[in-house]
Each structure stands twice: as structure tokens, then as C-alpha cells.
Design a protein around this nucleic acid. Structure first.
Lengths: 203, 203
DNA sequence: TCCTTTAACCTAACAGTGTTAGCAAAAGTA
DNA sequence: TACTTTTGCTAACACTGTTAGGTTAAAGGA
């Protein structure tokens, strides 16, 4: 490949990331509802159709952010899990990390779960379900096996759904209807729910 | 008031409900994203500005549906609670009823919680928080008091948040990312989560 | 009955949105 | 230099929500 072609690819890449970072800035400053192709075009000082040379449509831009979000949260969860060898501790750490990600990256979380963000087919950028399952299922099975109740694998499947539901439920209620209670109380609710859940696994 | 004025009020009311029922039909057939003022106007065979004689703007129409949704779910919850005198049974019945409402009225639920529906300030049509609290808090306090752990009132406040989070979490995960598992398994997850939660209140 | 006021209803427009057809200029290739 | 590809633009289309302004019909008062 010629040296010129290389430069052009580099420039193309640069424009793409320029579009993305500009779009992201608009989102963080004005929210998802306020993001439009024209606003991006204005901000990067190009005409509107140029955007379409780099992204098929608006959804493609959103899906790119969705991908970033999922990759980000998965990295955090993996790090959290690695922080301990005890399965119960691992579950708690994962829950804490997930919670922290959601509130430190509200824009991502809202997009990923279609909360107030413009509707788009997030499935298209979701990682395999197995990624999340592998992270959470293993410590669960371990806990259930230690407590010796029957079919740990089957049991864990049920508990796995419950685990994510509690987490997502806690977060999305706080996000949609932010109550007037303190940060401290919120953390307490998380702790109560998750430790209660883990205790239930054991007993 | 003259007989003519009465008729006019009646007609005005009729037009309002005509707009609403027509809009609702569009929503159930094509989803929230597809609802537009022009579509409503076409369907009722009037020009667009007529809609604005009956509703201040589009959000006002959405809020009307929001109000209907909240009133509907509250009625269901009250009926569920009345089905038993045992506090634990009451909580289970409320959870079941809430779950049933969500899946029998997906359009309402999505609007009420901003899931994929057009964004609007739902606070404006939400009932007082106390309505939900009064329904759920009382049986909780009763359960905790029977089990005799310390400050039941304070404790119930924490558990109250957890209760709704679990419920909403279960529902919204199933709604956003409908898994391939059966109706039966879903019910099992609900049962597991709620009975686990109640057991935790007691022990 | 005639006149005036008010309510109902419409056309046409404004300012946005996502998206695309088609053209001009620049850049790369032979 | 001549040809081809890429790049970027203007202008438009088909939609949104919303409103200004005018017309027609109905209601109330003399």
C-alpha cells in the first residue's frame, strides 16, 4: 500500500473519531435528546452529508457509543472480580463496580438501556450474553455448591437473573426518579439488597 | 347554563376522548415512536391545529396516558392487597399484580418509565409517592415487627426501596432484553426473588 | 330579524429532524 | 497531461411539533 493511501486511511480514521468525540461532547453537555446530525456537522465545521460518508446513519453513531459503553462496563466488572478470590466477595465487588459505572457514566447507561435516550436497536452492539454469564455465574455456583443445595448449576441460572434484576432495578429507579435521599442511603440500599441476596444463596 | 352551552361542553369532551382513543389505537398498533400529531389529525379527519384546541401540546397527550397508567396500576395493586390479610401474602400479591400489569399493559409501562417511549416529564402525572408507600410499607412493618428486629419503621424504609427495585428490575430486563426463556421460568424468577426478599424480612 | 361577537376550523408557514441526489472541485493515478 | 476517484457541498425530500392568521359558521343580544 502506498504512503499516500496510508495517510488517507489515517485521515479517515481521524475524521471518524472527530465526529464521535464531538458528538459525545454534545451528549454530555446537552443530553441524548439534543444530539442531531446537523449539530455535529456544525461543530466539526463540515456540511451535513459528510457525516454520512463515515457513518451509515445516526443509529450507527449511537451503536458505536453503545459498544464503548458495554466494553467499558465489562472491563470494570472484570477488574472488580479480580480483586478477590472469595466468591461472595467477588459478587459484591461486581455489584459495586456495576453501580459505580452506571452513575459515573449516566449517558452510557441510559443509552445502553434505552432510558430516555433515542430508541435504537442496542442488541446490535451488545456483547454475547455469555460474557456477563461467565463473569457472574461461576462465583454463584461456587457459593451454592458450598452450601450444598442440590442442582447448583440450575439454581444459579435462576439466581443469575435475580442478581442482575436487583442491580438494574436499584439503579434505574434511582436514575429515573432520583429521590431526595442521600448518596449514603443509596449505598445502603445497594448493600442491603446484594448482601441479602448473597445470604439467600448460602442459607 | 343554557342547554346549548351544555351540548357544546359535551361535544368538546367527546372530541377530547376521540383524540385520546385514536391516539391510543395508533400506539397499540404501531408503538410510541410512531405516534404523531398529524397521524392523529388524519385519523379523526380534522386538521392539525384542532388538536391544539384540546391539548396544549403533544406532551399533554402523553401525560394523560401516563395518568391513566398510574391510576390503572394503583387500582390493581389495591385489589391485590385486599385479597389477603396476611402481610407476607399481601406483598406477594402486590408483586404479582404489578408484574401482571406491566406485561398486560406494555405501552403504559414503557411510557411510565421512559422505556423507549418519547421522553416526557412523567413526574407531572405521577401520583404522590405516599400512595405507593402506604400500600407497601404497612405490610412490611408488620412483618418486621413480628420478627422483632429493632426499628421496624426505619428498616422498612430501606426494604421498601429494595422491594420496588427488584420488581422493576425484573420487569424491565425482561422487557428490554426479552430472553428466550419460557413464561414459566420468568414467573419462577419473580417468585424466587420476592419470596427470597420476604424471607429476608422475617429472618 | 339583523348585527355582533365568539367559537370552530382551515391553509400555510416556521423551525426543526434524518437522509439523499447530484454536482463541483480537489487529489491521486496513468 | 488526461482520466478516475475521493471529498465536500448545495439543495432538496419527507418527516417531526407548533403557531400565525384568515374564513366560515354558530350563538347571543337588540
Amino acid at each position: 500500500m502506498s504512503i499516500i493511501a496510508e495517510r488517507r486511511i489515517r485521515e479517515k480514521e481521524a475524521m471518524r473519531t472527530n465526529i464521535l468525540t464531538t458528538a459525545w461532547q454534545i451528549v454530555t453537555e446537552e443530553g441524548w435528546q439534543s444530539l442531531s446530525i446537523r449539530k455535529i456537522a456544525d461543530a466539526i465545521q463540515y456540511s451535513v452529508p459528510v457525516i454520512y460518508d463515515y457513518f451509515e446513519n445516526k443509529e450507527a453513531i449511537l451503536l458505536e457509543f453503545g459498544k464503548q459503553g458495554f466494553e467499558g462496563v465489562i472491563a470494570e466488572l472484570k477488574a472488580a472480580k479480580a480483586s478477590s478470590a472469595d466468591p461472595a466477595e467477588q459478587l459484591k465487588a461486581i455489584a459495586d463496580a456495576y453501580w459505580a459505572f452506571a452513575f459515573n457514566n449516566k449517558e452510557y447507561y441510559q443509552l445502553m438501556w434505552g432510558m430516555g435516550a433515542p430508541s435504537c436497536e442496542m442488541d446490535k452492539c451488545m456483547p454475547e450474553r455469555s460474557v456477563f454469564r461467565d463473569l457472574v455465574m461461576a462465583p454463584m455456583i461456587e457459593i451454592i455448591e458450598k452450601a450444598n443445595h442440590g442442582d447448583a448449576e440450575n439454581n444459579a441460572c435462576l439466581k443469575y437473573h435475580t442478581f442482575w434484576s436487583i442491580l438494574h432495578g436499584l439503579i434505574s429507579i434511582k436514575m429515573v426518579a432520583p429521590a431526595d435521599d442521600t448518596e449514603q442511603l443509596n449505598k445502603l440500599v445497594l448493600d442491603d439488597a446484594i448482601t441479602g441476596f448473597i445470604k439467600n444463596l448460602k442459607s
